[in-house]
Nucleic acid binder design. Structure first.
Length: 192
DNA sequence: GGACCGATGTTCT
DNA sequence: GAACATCGGTCCG
């Protein structure tokens, strides 16, 4: 399979259209000589102002700082005591925005992912904190530049799929915004 | 296969 | 000191 890194200006667009556009693309994680790759099958968009569900809704703080910074960076944060969640920063610098990756489908380096997770089958990557564990993404990867080679996104294959749009998961505000997107029928989606 | 619940640490009030 | 963009177990059907 041929993988081609997407262009940096992709990340300039608004979070909602980026969240949809990221479905079917490939997330690649390099660790020295080993490579892991997975197809993005579920995302959620978060913005700043006008998005009560977002970390960046109230104001800019040290934690959500990355969301306001330049696009095409990773925003990784620690959640609920034992989980890391991975976001891709979008929108121009100064405007808060990010896309949370909620689920992926492993395509390369699967053995390593199983080992990292200690799990089998869809359980390796069918949740936002599951795939970060599988792909060895943690605190050190916060602010990683996705135009470099440690973590990056590649264009997907030419395939047709339906996109389902729902309320985001795990938050109590902003539920009227249907900013969770996933590939219809994909078995790695966390909550169909 | 759905509902409930505890673990656990960082952030912000 | 409460809230929190979750997970994995357990219980009950």
């Amino acid at each position: 399979m041929k993988l081609r890194k997407i262009k940096a200006d992709f990340y300039l667009q608004n979070s909602v259209s980026a969240a949809k556009a990221l479905l079917g693309k490939y997330l690649v994680r390099r660790q020295g000589a080993s490579v892991m790759a997975a197809k993005i099958v579920e995302t959620e968009a978060y913005r700043g102002k006008n998005d009560p569900g977002s970390h960046a809704f109230v104001k800019r703080t040290p934690r959500n700082e990355v969301m306001f910074g330049p696009p095409g960076r990773a925003y990784v944060y620690f959640c609920y005591g034992n989980h890391y969640l991975f976001n891709i920063v979008t929108e121009p610098e100064g405007t808060a925005g990010a896309v949370l990756i909620r689920a992926v489908e492993p395509v390369a380096g699967i053995k390593r992912m199983k080992k990292n997770r200690g799990a089998e089958g869809i359980n390796i990557t069918n949740g936002p904190a599951k795939f970060t564990q599988a792909m060895a993404i943690g605190r050190e990867q916060n602010r990683t530049d996705l135009t470099k080679n440690e973590i990056y996104v590649c264009d997907g294959q030419k395939e047709k799929f339906g996109i389902v749009s729902k309320s985001r998961i795990g938050i109590k505000t902003g539920l009227d915004l249907k900013w969770r997107f996933y590939i219809k029928g994909n078995s790695y989606v966390s909550k169909p």
